[in-house]
Write a protein that binds this DNA or RNA. Sequence first.
DNA 1: GCTAAATACGGAAACGATTGCACATTTTAT
DNA 2: ATAAAATGTGCAATCGTTTCCGTATTTAGC
Lengths: 341, 341
Amino acid sequence: MSTGVNLKELAAELKLSPSTVSRALNDSYEISEATKKKVISMAEKLNYQPNPFARSLRENKSKTIAVVIPERMSNFFSKVVDGIEEVTQEHGYHLLVYCTHEDVDREKKIVNLLMNGRADAIVMSVSSQTSDISHLTRLHERGFPLVFFDRICPAIPTTKFITNDYESGFEGTKHLIQQGCRKIAFLMLSKELSITKERHRGYLDALRQAGLSPEPQLNITCCQEEEENIESIRKLLTGPNRPDGILSSVEKLALATYHAVKRTDLKIPNDLKIISFFSNLSIASLLNPSLTTITQPAFSIGEECAKLLIKKLTKPRQPDLPNQVITIPSHITIRSSTIVL
Amino acid sequence: MSTGVNLKELAAELKLSPSTVSRALNDSYEISEATKKKVISMAEKLNYQPNPFARSLRENKSKTIAVVIPERMSNFFSKVVDGIEEVTQEHGYHLLVYCTHEDVDREKKIVNLLMNGRADAIVMSVSSQTSDISHLTRLHERGFPLVFFDRICPAIPTTKFITNDYESGFEGTKHLIQQGCRKIAFLMLSKELSITKERHRGYLDALRQAGLSPEPQLNITCCQEEEENIESIRKLLTGPNRPDGILSSVEKLALATYHAVKRTDLKIPNDLKIISFFSNLSIASLLNPSLTTITQPAFSIGEECAKLLIKKLTKPRQPDLPNQVITIPSHITIRSSTIVL
DNA sequence: GCTAAATACGGAAACGATTGCACATTTTAT
DNA sequence: ATAAAATGTGCAATCGTTTCCGTATTTAGC
């Protein structure tokens, strides 16, 4: 419906051939400065816009990057996408954004759809339900540029961007121990997730280093239903084996914990201390009491993913994306949820 | 790089012509069931994926919808996009998502980029800085399918989806008055915004109905810098003309108000009552005190936008999008920030 | 003054799909 | 038995670019 002029019409108007006009617009050395000027001014006058599909078809690239995330209602993922957009937009790239809602089947469908070349690359964070990664290996084996961030697939030999999950888990736990906690629970979304594994490893090592023995009942695997999570945590908090500290490996479980605590007569931080991976600093300081957070550099992670891909896609003869894990450190901000005054 | 088989190769493999194969895959009546079977099974075997750009070029449609929002870090906009994706995905549509960061220039650039047909339609919420809407009228005049939601352009004759802003502003203010407020401030992002105007109109009418006179100094226009907003609000709260109630027309300003209050020794709800348009229910109830909210049906808004566009784009001879405003009502949830026990 | 190179441009193929038209074969109608 | 219609398939144009060639004109070199 939005049919402006095309190259042929523009050429006819200029009494030139389409090939000349195309070259002029692409600033080819074969075209004289005089005709370049004429072509450009006429193109502007007629508001010529090259058809992106014709170009994509011919050049076999779409100037589009697909972003696949498990949820939109998360400060972390929103910031990552902002970071990606910040650098891709400068280079004229467009962003297709897909949300899996933590559903592997949806993830597979999306990935399979993307195999037809609609996007030149994918940057993704896998769903918490993803254990079979055949759809991703297939994609990668076809040579499709793919980078992971945060929730990565270690088995796929490409570049991954993460934060220092192990250290953060370790330091977070250590902080709780230093504040006097002896029974520390670990909250996670899924055991499959790379981030859970690493953060949990840090948690365990910190416990061991302090001479505390890990208790399996203190590891809580949550689900997608907020209400269900709140109840699981409430039961934990009112049960016989009540923790005195909580390390939450994802943002939403910290909020669930606050909800759960409201249903008990426990007080944070006196009866329970909590620290969480959390990206929404404004909210963290407004919670009551304010939440001690491990803040991931979400925006930077997005930027780095995008920079790498842009380099790969725009420079002439780039090698495959190297199989490496790039770590951008998080930082801990201590607030009231772990400090008894 | 991800070059699978194309139609010609698939046809060669089957010893058929490309046209026959194309028709078979598109379930044309001209092709016998026998060959359809053969073609389909071979297509699956070779994992044939039609090239989306060739198809788009030929059919002059992209199966893509562009979404333009002012920010990603907002529960409201995230939910709207989720709603849009929910219905578009079913119909095989893809979503290009752009964020203007409340910047008109970025908005114009994005809209101009979209004029080349990369997307079949646009669904958008304008930036708070948008007063010149020439880029949008141009788009619409070219016949480009365009729908607005929440922050709409009343001057552009197309379909817009909003919530009952006037009534919500009215009822919210009325609620504050019923709780004893006499000096009610109104917080907004920009006077230009459709939502500000309507919500403010409701606010003014509620004041008048209660015999209260509106005071211009109680209308606070905020900006993009959270810290700056917090300080403006703090000054308001500690100044000589201190309000005893606040109606915040957007989510982020409610949070800024909570921050500002923390810097004073005022107590919510005793010294100050607050109600806000707010979509993150989980957070609203965790704030201290919990926040009385006007909740917009974000997901439904997204769904409705998408349903309308899908109908327009997939049914054969659809008329232009009608010039109408469709209202989906918000609802007020009273919590502690407006109720003195 | 004649060849060689440089300059500036046009013609046409190609990218991968869809589709109007033609055509051969079979079926139906008379 | 023959014309007409129905069926199943192929050829080739088309969508709007880019780019490989080819070529005409000018400039340079000796």
